[in-house]
Design a protein around this nucleic acid. Sequence first.
DNA 1: CTTAGTAGGCTTTTT
DNA 2: GCCTACTAAG
Length: 768
Amino acid sequence: MEFLNELNESQRKAVEYIDGASLVIAGAGSGKTRVLTYKIAYLLKKGIHPTSILALTFTNKAAREMKERIASMVGEKTARYLWMGTFHSVFSRILRAEADKTDFSKNFSIYDSSDSNSLIKSIIKDLKLDEKQYKASQVHARISFAKNNLITPETYRTNADLAKADLYSKMPRLVDIYEIYSQRCKQADAMDFDDLLLQTNLLFRNRPDVLQKYRDAFSYILVDEYQDTNFAQYLIVRKLSEEHQRICVVGDDAQSIYSFRGANIDNILKFRNSYTNTQVFKLEQNYRSTQNIVNAANSLIDKNSEQIRKTVFSEKETGKPIKILNTFTDLEEGVVVAENINHLKFSQNFSYKEIAILYRTNSQSRVLEEALRKKGIPYRIYGGLSFYQRKEIKDVIAYCRLVVNHNDEEALKRIINVPARGIGDTTVAKLLDCARTQAVSVWDVLNDMLAYNLQVNAGTATKLANFRKVISVFAAQTETLNAYELMLQIVKVSGIINDTYVDKSPEAMSRQENVQELLKAVHEFCEQKTKAGETALLTDFLSEVSLLTDQDTGDDGESEKITMMTVHAAKGLEFRAVFIVGMEEDLFPSAYSLDSDRSLEEERRLFYVAITRAEELCFISYSKTRFRNGKTNMSNPSRFIRDIDPQYLDAPSERPETRWKESADWDEDFEFERKSFQRDSFKPRPVENTYVQPRKNLTKVGDAHLQTSKQIIENKNLPVGAFVKHAVFGIGKVLETTVTDGNEKAEIDFGEKGKKSLLLKFAKLELL
DNA sequence: CTTAGTAGGCTTTTT
DNA sequence: GCCTACTAAG
């Protein structure tokens, strides 16, 4: 196995140890993924069948990339059969396969957090509790915490500590909400994210035969990012592996940054207690960063008390010290960062795609965007509102969910009046009430409004019946049409698109495009599945789509744009140059983390993650003032900057003009400065080199559309046979043009991407 | 029932 | 500053 020669001593030892439990502590940039992939390849070469290897990751992206790398080593035919994916996707698959042994059907819906929150909100209303006292998101966090720790409503009720905590946080009836929430989820045949782990645990607990089946099936188990596992995940892994002990977990306690999601750093710190005879392997050589960056990061993390001690070192060049940038305002911070980026680009031989700006909170991206745009620096923002969370996408998905699972109440509530069909809040409330009092689903009521004695007038009853009919017609086709064909039907017939056709606003155009994009994704999904000989029904698509995040839709990474994202999102990535912005008290570390040492240490680890993303250059910036939540606040440099050994820093003495002013005229000066920045921002932007990911505020996207629309074809007659270029589909040939309702439509052959029928006023075609 | 407009609330990170 | 939830008018 000559590929083992590509590993260093400790990596190779970690790969070759396959006889028992092992813990691989992998420092930042030490080739963690490499060990994991080589180990799987090693197992395969040793003759272990791919179907008996279970490899769990935290993102779909990580799973996909690892699978690709393994495929290149052992061949696609073998790699295809590996059980590799996120905890959530692997166990949702198992839960569907074993549905007859659970309280759910095999087509259960998956509630995302907004579905959960909306359900919780309605329960709080039903219980006539004060919505300010019981905030849905907080209640959800409590329920999520309980589920992650495998506390069911019944056990919750018997737990005095929890009762005390709830009383203390003024939510004594939390357990009642939790109980009803669980019932309603069951009634709707829906699981939330946490259920996927909880229900798996319940299944394994209640059905030893099922547990045994999977114990036997998975003869080797590997877990990536083990420091981010929560109790539910820990227990699943443990149950599956405790018999044969062939388990390998990989992680870095110094990069544990997801405790807010229930991750428990003790899982990795105490792994050795759970598996006696654990072999520990430490990967300490960092291949990513210069010595300066590694040393600076080490000196920072050294300030944490809870950690597995290790000596991460680099044998790369010494490199440059971390440069500290300080400015007076957050706007200026953006400008300075932009200037430095251009310096790197034009005098230091950096390309934009090698540069990243990292921040603590998504809201910081706004000012930075503005500064970059002014300088004409192309960028791509990751995070924020993901594709699958956009309203129009969620609407289409909700239709699909309801078609597949009629009991999916959140989906039903979402679209029963989308587009407006005269079924208002009052009617919906009546429906819900009726369903609730008779302990049936809303769909049951719709099916027999008379039997359930639904009190609505004849007109409303007809509207409801029509709605039911529409969904039923779709449902009748779930087995005959594939996901794409059915979703196309749904989009066309339901009328979701119609109102956006009429509406010519930029927002509507953007929505239209997003739906097209979704259809395209489904189309690709179907082609892939069909090629692999698997079914491509709507249920198949839905079971995957609910677990996708925008990280997975994220494109090439090849385009010449700088990357902007939160530090959390940057974990696992690397860039030649990294700018960490907003290093100020109350922002980074976040004000929320200050009440406990544990959470403060997590913030420090987060900063550690940020620094260790950098290969060559790292910049840290902070500002004296920052505009936040509609107000300007003064801020002090983050304590974490002082945690870094100054010998690795290049910190200039403060520029006089940015020094904190305490005189009475400070406010005026400040206002002046802000306005002067804002005035500039209204200049036209170089749209062609900036890509703005559609986000919460769609007006910016709209602007971009308006400006690009000059060079594209609008409602003009397009010659048949002409060649055109589309932003997504590429170059195509016009086959036919038609006019419907005054809108010109063209049938265009995009070769490999297939034939598409596009509305010219939306398609942004460029005539070639 | 729908829409538009406004007041009030809230703002960490996300599989 | 943004989003939501409520209110008033069509």
